[in-house]
């Protein structure tokens, strides 16, 4: 138990540092940045303690906001996906989630991609809506969230593949 807590704390710190020091400065084609820090939320173990999970997601988003001067937009997006995660898990994994036998790190690739895509799309849409904060720029919001989502998805899949090989 202690080692898993240590794992999550170090994952939290490493993902935040990766995000604010490297990924925020990629600016592919001028404005596309991956937001791979939500991997912490995606890979958080499935347990019954939803309150702790929501709180941790808030802290994660808040930390990113602190570094990138963005008010509370990351926090809002993170809390939302943390709250919606059980429903999305049930939708994508079905029975294995309900029987509490699911481990995201070892799940099949098909449902895993669906699960990542849904969460990333929700997160990015909320993020950019709050960032732009102007409904007349809905096209800009859609463009930004779509392209960044693709980038984030690729990044998340690469990271999970890279780091899951060690544990097998």
């Amino acid at each position: 138990m202690n080692s898993s807590i240590a794992l999550h704390i170090s994952r939290f710190v490493l993902l935040v540092l990766l995000q604010v020091l490297i990924l925020n400065h990629i600016n592919f084609l001028g404005y596309i940045n991956p937001y791979a820090y939500i991997l912490f939320i995606l890979l958080f173990p499935i347990s019954n303690n939803r309150q702790l999970f929501i709180l941790l997601s808030f802290v994660l988003g808040f930390t990113i906001d602190l570094f990138s001067d963005s008010g509370g937009i990351h926090a809002a997006a993170c809390v939302t996906i943390a709250y919606l995660r059980p429903m999305i898990l049930k939708f994508t994994f079905g029975t294995s989630y309900e029987h509490q036998t699911l481990k995201i790190g070892t799940s099949e690739i098909g449902p895993r991609i669906t699960y990542f895509t849904i969460i990333i799309l929700i997160h990015h849409f909320i993020l950019f809506t709050l960032e732009v904060f102007n409904t007349s720029n809905i096209l800009l919001i859609a463009k930004k969230s779509l392209f960044s989502s693709i980038f984030t998805l690729i990044m998340c899949l690469i990271l999970t593949v890279l780091f899951s090989r060690n544990s097998k």
């Binding site: 808030f58 988003g61 008010g71 926090a75």
Partner: peptide, 29 residues
């Protein structure tokens, strides 16, 4: 769970709105 979510979400929105007004974003920068 929902109440905690609603509370934290409202807090984030509050921080976002506050950061949108010049000279008021004292908490997060």
């Amino acid at each position: 769970s929902f109440l905690l979510f609603a509370l934290l979400f409202a807090l984030s929105i509050f921080l976002t709105i506050q950061s949108n007004s010049y000279h008021k974003s004292k908490f997060i920068n």
